[in-house]
Amino acid sequence: MTLALEVNHVSKAYQDFMIEDLSFSVPKGYIMGLIGPNGAGKSTTIKMILNLVKKDRGSIKIFGFDHIEHEIKVRERIGMVFDENHFYEDLTCAQVKKIIARFYKNWDERIYHNYMKQFQLPHDKKVKELSKGMKMKFAIAMALSHHAELIIMDEPTAGLDPIVRSEVLDILQEIVLDENKSVLFSTHITTDLEKIADYLTFIHDGQVVFSEAKDDVLEHYWLVKGDDSLLDQDRRHLFVGIRKSDYGFVGLTRDVEQVRGSLKNSVIYEKPSLEEIMIYTVKKG
């Protein structure tokens, strides 16, 4: 499988936070969702990929090239969409495009105009006059108009209304119809990823909890519901996270066979959502 992005054993230490031995990869032609709670290290990871933040250790390869050694070559092939607007607010879309287009060898006016038309964006409106959704669509149009093969998006759907969010997700799915294009998409809105992601990397406290195909994740994890009395110290170890209520306990497990062996049919087994996987993993209990 050809990889668009490889992050290998990357670490970065801050005074109060640390990213430790982070490894994951994005196969070509797929959407990788980077999930995790706020402050988990998703944005820092993306910044390290773009070399906006210097990593302390490890290696990052984009299309097989080191991201720093081949910085310019690699960036020609990346389209970046940030969580908030980074374009010059006082300029019109056309003026911003004119400035940015000069930097890319493969800038394609036809593609740019097609996206502007498809997203119904006005060329002559100032960036500050655009709505949040329009700004996001403009950023996507800018990121896609130079034939980028890896689109990196940092929380692109945060703060968008459900209709625009759904439009953005449709656009992402459209992008990967071209099997040369891959998407790395960070978010804490897990329902977005349930719709579109092929692979998932879950980061928590600066560490990778899992990085695998979404279907495998959803297959491996199970929610187990039962009476409190069934939970002894040995059985607790079978769960990634446990929540208790007046009605009993709910635990998330990655090893359902072992739980079945221990608790048999005295409990209820259910498939969790990505959100539940994230909550139980983070809260532990």
Binding site: N51, I72, I78, H86, Y88
Partner: peptide
Amino acid sequence: GIEEKNNSEKLVLSLPLK
């Protein structure tokens, strides 16, 4: 100053530039 006001430094740094 304009770069900082618009938060555009990140944008410039993600362009194919050293």
